[in-house]
Amino acid sequence: MKYYLPLISVVALSLLSACNKNDEPEVVGGPADPMAAQLANAAPVELPPSVKVSHQYRCKDNSLIFVDFLSDDKTANLRTEKTGAPTKLVAAEPGKPFTAEGGYSVEGSGKQIIATLPGKSGISCKA
C-alpha cells in the first residue's frame, strides 16, 4: 500500500494538469457585427454631470431652499422642499446666474446666494 499512494497522487496530478483553465469561450468565424462601422464612427458618450456640492439655504423670508450644484459649473437643481421634485437651472456659462423657465433664478454658488422664485423677487439666502 505504501507504493500505491505516491503512484495514485502522480496520476491524479497529471490528470488535473491537463484541464483547460481558460474561462473565456473561443469564438471562431462568428457572424459579422452589422453595426460595427456605425459604432466605430459614433461620437464619444458624454456622461451627465455629477453633484459637486449641495447646500440648504435659509432665506430672509425664513423659507428654506435646497440647491445641488453640478460638476459642469453650468447646471444646478433647485428644490423648495427637501424631498420635492428638482427644477433644473442652467447658466449660459460658468459664473453666470442659473435660470429656468417659470421665473426661477439663482445667482451665486457659495454660502450666500440670491434666489428668485415664481411670484417672489430676489431673496438673499445663506447656507
Rank of each mutant, 00 (worst) to 15 (best):
P6W: 08
L7K: 05
I8R: 04
A12G: 13
L16D: 03
L16A: 15
S17H: 04
D23Y: 08
E26F: 12
E26G: 09
V27T: 10
V28M: 13
V28E: 07
G29K: 08
G29L: 13
G30E: 06
A32G: 00
D33W: 09
P34S: 06
Q38L: 13
A42W: 06
A43R: 12
A43Q: 13
P44N: 04
V45D: 10
V45S: 07
E46G: 06
S50H: 06
V51S: 14
V51M: 10
V53Y: 01
H55P: 00
H55G: 05
Q56E: 14
D61G: 11
L64N: 08
V67I: 15
L70Q: 05
L70F: 04
L70E: 06
S71P: 04
D72P: 01
T75G: 01
K82I: 14
G84P: 07
P86I: 00
P86M: 01
K88M: 13
L89I: 01
V90C: 08
A91G: 06
A92F: 03
G95C: 10
G95N: 11
K96D: 06
A100S: 14
G102R: 02
G103I: 06
S105M: 14
G108L: 03
G108I: 03
Q112M: 13
I113R: 01
I114G: 04
A115L: 04
T116V: 13
T116P: 02
P118C: 04
G119W: 07
K120Y: 02
S121A: 14
S121P: 02
S121G: 15
C125H: 03
A127I: 07
A127W: 05
